[in-house]
Structures are given as C-alpha cells and as structure tokens.
Amino acid sequence: MTSGLFSKFNRVGAWVLLLFLVTPALIAIPVSLTPKRFLSMPKGEFSLRHFEKLFTSEEWLSSFFQSGVIAVSTSALATVLGTLCAIGLWRVSSRYSELVRAFLLLPLIIPQIISAMAFYRLWIPLGLLDSYAGLILAHTILAAPMVLITVSASLATFDPKLEQASKNLGASNWTTMRRVILPSIKPGVFAGALFAFILSWDEIVVTLFISKFSVYTLPRRMWNGIRENTDPTVAAAAVVLIAITVIAFVITSIMSRRSAKSQAQ
C-alpha cells in the first residue's frame, strides 16, 4: 500500500519537476508572440512581427548563419576527434589509458569560465581571437569529451570478437574499423555529434570571451539583446533556437533507433 502511494507520489513529483525544468524555456513561446515592442506576455492579442523581424534583419540572420557554421564545424571536428580517441583508448585499454581518459574529460569538469579565460589568454598570441577558427577550436575542445563519453559507451557493448573475426577473415585494421567497428558504434557517434552540435549552438560563456565584432553568434546576439534593450525578438530567436535543438535531437534519436533496429532484426 505504502509503496503504491509512494510510487504515485513519485510519478506526480517527477512530472512537477519536469514542468519546473521546462516551463522557463517554454515561457519564450508566448513572449515571442507579443504585439508589444518590449518583453511582455501577450494579452489576448498575438503577433508574428518579432519573427518577421528576426527573419528579415540582416544582423539576426547573419548570427544564425554564423552559429550554424560554427556548430556544424564543431560537431564534425569533435566527432572525428572524440571517436578516434575513444577507439584508441578502447584498443589500448590499460590502467594508463583510464588515466588518459580522466585527463581528457577535464574540459567537461572544469568550470567554463575558467576554460574561457584560458582560451582568451592562449588565443591572443595565436591570433585566433574573434575568428571562426578560434571559436570552432574552443568549442571543439569543449565538445570532444562528450563524444568520447558517448562513443566509449557504445564501445563498451561492442563484442571484441567481431574485430577478431574481421581480422581472421583477412581485413586490415583500417578495413575492420570502417566496415565493422564504426557501423557497430554508430548510435554513440550520432549521439556524440548531436551533443557537440548543441553545446556549440548555445555556448555563451567562452564565446563572450573570445569573440567581439567579426564573429557574432546567436546566443551572443541574444545576450546583448536582453542586456541593452528588452527587444522581444530575443524571445523569437529563443523559440527558433529551441526548435532547432529539438529537431536535431529528434532526427538523431530516430537515426540511432533505426540503426539499432536494423541490427536487432
């Protein structure tokens, strides 16, 4: 009886918690529809004017484009690096490789503000400040550990006998990697690519430190939009941001489910 009550309470609690977590993000949706010129909840009247502004303003569009380029490049770079690293550590698989793994996860553990300062100090002499390359590199360093984690999780369930079988059948290391290992860990690679994309897509702390004029990402423009004026276009941008993230997430989960299914059948 008590366990029944407890599990009911648990379930309700879980939904309340979920609502608590999600509501602030969803607030952006009604706010983005306000007809007023400042951030406010719409009262009976709705308007798409802020979306119109968002998609006609050269500034906002260029920020979308820049964020897109940076996030896609980061995702691609981090996925390649993280996957290779995960496979390397899995191959070696000793006490030292676990040490190396812990070291490689540091960018995830260190507070971002500290990473941001480090990037700032380092990027000045390298001339990477306020450039695409600088942002992509910094985001890649932050995102690669995520890929390392998701791919390592996939590799943990990979049967090492498949690698032996491939070699026994005459395949070189490279062929084995391309035709046996990579297809088996696809779900982990997809998930890692998605996480890397999302990380870069909404990264603000590091971006504030190492970009200024020539690179102006979407989160950065939103940050300024809220600080300097209470323009509801920010809310419209937030809605688009959330939508793109959700779409990316849905696509990835469909793809990983499909690849899991094609193996299970």
């Binding site: 049967d159 006998k161 032996q164 026994n168």
Partner: peptide, 13 residues
C-alpha cells in the same frame, strides 16, 4: 585460417 568463434561473432549490421 578460417575460424568459427564461440558465440559466432557474426557482423550484426
């Protein structure tokens, strides 16, 4: 050398 593994190790994909 051909080999039949314990648990077969067929490529699942």
């Amino acid at each position: 050398f051909g080999m039949v593994f314990q648990g077969y190790a067929l490529f699942p994909h």
